[in-house]
Design a protein around this nucleic acid. Sequence first.
DNA 1: CCCTTCACG
DNA 2: ACGTACGTGAAGGGT
Length: 419
Amino acid sequence: MLDRLKEQGSLTLFQDVEMPLVPVLAEIERNGFLLDVEGLRALSKELERELDRMMETIARLAGGEFNINSPKQLATVLFEKLGLKPGRKTKTGYSTDEDTLTQLATQHDLPAQILNYRSLSKLKSTYVDALPELLHPDTKRLHTSLNQTVAATGRLSSTEPNLQNIPVKGDYGLRIREAFIAPKGHELLCADYSQIEPRILAHLSQDPRLISVFAKGEDIHMATAMEIFGLPSGQITRDMRRAAKTVVFGIVYGISPFGLSQNIGVSQAEAKKYIETFFEKFSAVRALMDRNIAEGKEKGYTTTILGRRRPIPELQSGDPVQRGFGERMAINSPIQGSAADLIKVAMINVHKKLHQDQPHTKMILQVHDELIFEVPEKNLDEAKRLVKKEMEGVGKQLGLSVPLKVDLGVGKNWRVAHP
DNA sequence: CCCTTCACG
DNA sequence: ACGTACGTGAAGGGT
């Protein structure tokens, strides 16, 4: 049966994707990404001056100098020297992570300064200073490695450098994106799947309301906000829409009332109500979660649209905490993994068409739900059409019950090209 | 070499 | 009673 469907071309399995993807990945790695090194050098100087200033402020607030990059020294300053109230503990001592410092910011001026310092220091060391060192001596470009056998869900991973976690938020983050540029006579084209995971959730669950939202091209977060809060669109505030967005994310991740309450800053009881209401209104989603967990327990693995398996031994654990992890993996993996399947098929299809019609347009990166191309200016209109058509076409090819939507952005650098 | 932290989807 | 949202990679500190 499976063989016959495959011969008819109506069935694709993940095995049929991994191997054909290899030459596509090889080409992306070979193509590389062009970098504005001068821009980054200037930014580095600017960050250095800024960090020096902040270091003085921090020393003044702390009553002495210390290594701000050392969580251990920082904990000593915050919790012993200044006597602030510690939050949660790690294996090695009191935590000084972002959540903790944000809480502490109500008691003292130092924590906010530390957070500020940390974010800038991160950007400088991980990106601004590190990336120019990794340019290939011959091509003068960044050539990442895209790994197909690392992520348990079937996603790609990117190393040396990781180009899948280039900053996208904040003033300095955007300045870093600006340094990823198109060569002369070219533009960057970014093509982004819109709401890929909720769409897959709609397909896998066959929830009629979710399917209808996407079929009509409605705003998923507005629609869930209306359901959760029981109000018409005119009465949905920004905060309500934002909360609904977080609920949808949470559902995909295997939510707990605690996690949601922490994330959106409401009581656990309130968070529990949101989750329950969501499951009442989208009851097929709860059925999908239950099914995924039950199937994972029975078979020892979960599956994606293309039949990719993820073993989840934690589901058989006697330890409730481990089993909880396993259950969340069983909820998330089919969704995240199916999204990975989908974009891999898209990459193969787009690559094939480009090879035929536009050999000078190069695929230069994949970032989970997004593809980035370097396009000769004269080919831009045709490239946009081709990429959007091929990426959206994967939905029909794989028999999805909802349409796929791709947003496009164009520009001379990654900041402005990002849709 | 492990731990903590934080950058992305 | 318990811990508590999925998947990654890199840098810096400290042993």
